[in-house]
């Protein structure tokens, strides 16, 4: 039974029996893992308040081959993000990022996904401007890392470049933009209009470097929210919206 020590972020916790907790972790070396922290709910547990969602640390656990649940033996705190719970939109955003990783991350370790999630949670804690921009941006970054980024620079049917002020459409099934010329030649696609302003803001949200100052508000926020929700449901979640997305939308109303 090898003892494994790896950087980890706590995504979700479940109460187990009278005193224990089961944690879903995103680890740097082993990807998604489930561990049991025995006695973690006792008032004088050695884990104390460390094992909370959105906390970063170094987890040490006994990894048994062929087992899905490992036993946590230690957790050294690197960064706690309790502040996310003090504001509902931040909390909802952190829940969304965690749910995307929990439900769609591959079983194998992915360094970039691991650090992308941490960056996303850090942005959510630190942002003083429009939180919605940060949430949408960080969610798209995770989706891109998972290999599902939409293509919006070129028409996904004819390959022609789409210029800035051109009206175009977004094909949910095709996962990208369709130019107005191809729109007239197609039928049966799940299309929605993508106005130049909405397309420009979507390009900003998809960019790895934050080109949208969060101090500004999104002009097309409802359309961006709808697109992200439907895109995740279509491509990743069997046409069902994520629980945390519904929670987020209710908070942003």
């Amino acid at each position: 039974m090898p003892l494994v020590t790896t950087e980890a972020t706590v995504l979700k916790t479940y109460e187990y029996s009278e005193t224990s907790k089961i944690l879903r972790l995103l680890t740097r070396d082993l990807g998604l893992c489930s561990v049991i922290a025995k006695g973690a709910r006792r008032p004088k547990s050695r884990f104390g308040g460390l094992l909370e969602p959105f906390t970063d640390g170094e987890a040490t656990f006994y990894a048994k081959e062929g087992r899905e649940l490992h036993t946590l033996s230690g957790f050294e705190l690197h960064r706690e993000r309790q502040a996310l719970g003090r504001e509902l939109v931040r909390y909802a955003g952190a829940g969304l990022l965690s749910e995307i990783v929990l439900r769609f991350a591959p079983a194998a370790a992915d360094d970039e996904l691991f650090f992308q999630l941490r960056r996303g949670l850090d942005h959510l804690v630190e942002e003083n401007g429009d939180l919605e921009i940060v949430i949408l941006q960080q969610a798209w970054q995770l989706i891109e890392r998972l290999g599902f980024a939409p293509s919006i620079d070129r028409c996904t049917l004819c390959g022609a470049g789409i210029v800035g002020d051109e009206d175009c459409f977004f094909d949910l099934g095709g996962g990208g933009a369709i130019c107005a010329r191809c729109r007239t030649r197609t039928s049966g696609l799940s299309l929605r209009p993508l106005k130049p302003r909405a397309r420009a803001e979507l390009i900003g949200l998809l960019s790895p470097r934050p080109p949208l100052p969060a101090a500004r508000r999104l002009e097309t926020a409802p359309a961006q929210r709808d697109l992200l929700r439907d895109f995740i449901a279509y491509h990743l979640a069997d046409h069902r919206p994520l629980n945390s997305f519904r929670f987020l939308e209710e908070r942003l109303r």
């Binding site: 909370e52 969602p53 993000r81 996310l84 719970g85 003090r86 509902l88 909390y91």
Partner: peptide, 15 residues
């Protein structure tokens, strides 16, 4: 409870 979830619930009730 003194957890992130409990804190968020308290923030909502305060609001």
């Amino acid at each position: 409870n003194p957890s992130v979830e409990g804190e968020a619930t308290a923030a909502y009730l305060h609001k």
